[in-house]
Design a protein around this nucleic acid. Structure first.
Length: 574
RNA sequence: GCGCCCGUAGCUCAGUGGAUAGAGCGUUAGGUUGCGGACCUAAAGGUCGUGGGUUCGAGUCCCGCCGGGCGCACCA
């Protein structure tokens, strides 16, 4: 559609109907970015474009004049195709000018049927954008959750987990190659503190003020396997004092790995699986941090000051320079970040996405600056900041203190509300908005909860298909003339069914998923209206029934595909 | 004090510079003894926090103010 309008505009200029622009590059940019949308009202056609108004200034003509010229070219093109040419019918039936210069386009009636038939021929591909085989797919790294394994995941981690996974699914559907990645710290202060806490409880002592006090720590203390206990006592007997191999390190490392496996299991229960688990320590042992630092040093972006090593972040617009290596000789977390950027791009990714809690926004600039200093483009390091969630029950915010051990774990939350419900809840809200998660509303298994509305519609579609089968009816081989009259319930439903690829494209382009939930709701609503107005299985109208069975199958395919995109099940029965 | 995010219907939230700002819930009035009622139709409900600006056109972009959240370490 964009192509057709762009071509028509160029032809109108070429033919002299419109004056050429002074700035040809600006015209190219304009045509490249042509906006086409589905109007709110079908009175305005199937598609509408504002290109005439956009190009008005550049072409120095009134929007209505430009739109009229485009319409004339579109009409001429449609005529050529119909009367020979390559034999293929163009998609556009008619075009008109409306309002201040909107270009309204109506599609050829048969197009809907063609689209539907094509989609049913390849149902598994539906919802995945067609691949341009000449273009290499974009390789994207999506790093998310990345909570340090010092305790089980809490409800606070839930949003990041879903947002990262949902984004990954959308990008994959759009043809990108996605690696889901979890970054965690398996050494350092927090893990030592965990080790100390476990040892204290094992020995019947009190956990230090800044230690970990949750029930899970006590469980760890009683679950130390014999070989770990042996190594721990050996370390103590030898009087090892290095933070790499003393008793605290041995116990801490074991505890943290055990917790990490628990986290992995919790996430798997949400349908979230990671391709790569990357430990912070490995960035040092494998030399990535050193190599990145050398690269920065060679480029002149480092500075020794007060005994510490600084990155000149201010040269890239940051408020202050940032320490990479402390005067004690230890690296900061930022040092790890730099090594990690180098490591990720070294694996060949075109684009990095970091899904971070909003409280990390202060570190966005320095990491991107360091990446730029290492020679990578800023626009390929994207930090998706996920806003805070208040968990509310009956209007009261739930207390969430990790220190006091009163937090609610992710497992507990999911047990209560279910994965499908939670996925829908987070998918339907933009990540940057702080939200109140009303547990009661998300739990309701009725019409209050849109996820069940969409699932129910799918179950009803399947039920109709079963009924048709039971009565010996088969879906027809093609949709035939069922959709020719655009005012019928059938055509109205079909128009919604075929929109999924646009929805996927938009979601991938904007890195957001709300559009998918909106689409699933719209499709379910459209089906409900169809269901009310049209009888599908009707033994007195065999042809119509078989065509409608095909339409219902298409609706089910599209609804299931949109739910799959969200990682939500599409049940055949409820 | 500085920086980032947010403010849209009674509630929870969508909204890509475009036409009459939407959805679900809630409220009100109806329908549906039929392929699944976990349904459908309709109504009421909005100074898009506020004041300027840019634009043919602003909920959307820019600036100020008000309100809320989160950050401002040689912590992780």
């Amino acid at each position: 559609m964009r192509d057709a309008i762009g071509r028509a505009l160029r032809r109108a200029i070429a033919s002299g109907a419109l004056p050429g622009p002074e700035d040809a590059a600006a015209l190219d940019a304009l045509i490249h970015g042509i906006e086409v949308e589905v109007p709110a009202s079908s009175d305005h056609g199937d598609y509408a474009s504002n290109i005439a108004m956009k190009s008005s200034k550049l072409l120095k003509r009134a929007p209505a004049q430009i739109a009229a010229a485009i319409v004339a070219e579109l009409a001429a093109e449609a005529g050529e195709r119909i009367h020979g040419g390559d034999g293929a019918l163009g998609p556009i039936a008619s075009a008109s000018v409306a309002g201040p210069g909107f270009l309204n386009v109506r599609l050829r009636a048969g197009l809907l049927a063609d689209l539907l038939d094509a989609m049913i021929a390849a149902p598994n591909a539906w919802g995945h954008l067609a691949q341009n085989t000449r273009e290499k797919p974009l390789r994207v790294n999506v790093e998310f959750v990345s909570a340090n394994p010092t305790g089980p995941l809490t409800v606070g981690n839930a949003r990041g987990a879903f947002v990262g996974d949902l984004l990954s699914r959308v990008l994959e559907a759009a043809g990108q190659e996605v690696t889901r990645e979890y970054y965690f710290n398996d050494f350092g202060e927090q893990v030592r503190r965990l080790g100390e806490s476990v040892i204290a409880l094992r020995d019947g002592a009190e956990v230090a003020e800044d230690g970990y006090k949750g029930d899970y720590v006590a469980e760890l203390a009683t679950a130390i396997p014999p070989d770990v206990a042996t190594r721990a006592s050996a370390a103590r007997a030898s009087g090892a004092t290095s933070t790499d191999d003393d008793e605290v390190a041995v116990i801490g490392k074991w505890a943290s790995e055990r917790i990490r496996r628990g986290i992995q299991a919790s996430l798997a229960a949400l349908g979230v699986e990671f391709d790569v688990w990357r430990s912070e320590g490995s960035l040092y042992t494998e030399g990535f941090v050193d190599r990145a630092i050398e690269k920065l040093r060679a480029a002149g972006w480092l500075e020794e000051r007060d005994g510490a090593l600084w990155f000149k972040s201010t040269a890239f617009g940051d408020d202050k320079d940032r320490v990479i290596k402390k005067s004690t000789g230890a690296y900061t977390y930022f040092g790890s970040d730099i090594g990690y950027v180098e490591e990720k791009f070294g694996r060949g990714f075109d684009h990095l996405v970091y899904v971070w809690g909003a409280d990390h926004h202060g570190t966005v600039a320095r990491v991107r600056n360091a990446g730029e200093a290492l020679g990578y483009a800023k626009e390929h390091m994207e930090m998706l900041l996920v806003a805070w969630v208040r968990f509310v029950r009956d209007g009261v915010e739930m207390s969430m203190s990790k220190r006091a051990g009163t937090f609610v774990t992710l497992d507990e939350l999911l047990e209560e509300i279910g994965v499908d419900s939670a996925r829908w809840y987070f998918a339907s809200r933009s990540a940057s908005t702080a939200i109140d998660f009303d547990i009661k509303a998300a739990t309701a298994r009725n019409s209050e909860n849109p996820v069940y509305y969409a699932q129910y519609a799918h179950a009803r579609m399947q039920s109709i298909l079963r009924k048709g089968e039971a009565e010996g009816m088969k879906a027809s081989e093609s949709i035939g003339d069922l959709l020719n009259d655009e005012a019928t319930p059938d055509a109205k439903l079909a128009r919604v069914i075929v929109r999924l690829p646009e929805v996927v494209e938009d979601a991938a382009a904007h890195h957001e998923t709300q559009g998918v939930t909106t689409y699933a709701t719209e499709l379910a609503t459209a089906f409900s209206a169809f269901y009310r107005d049209a009888k599908v299985v009707d033994s007195s109208a065999a042809t119509l029934s078989s065509q409608r069975l095909r339409l219902v199958a298409a609706a089910a395919t599209s609804l299931a595909a949109s739910l799959r995109l969200l990682g939500i099940s599409a049940p055949a029965e409820m």
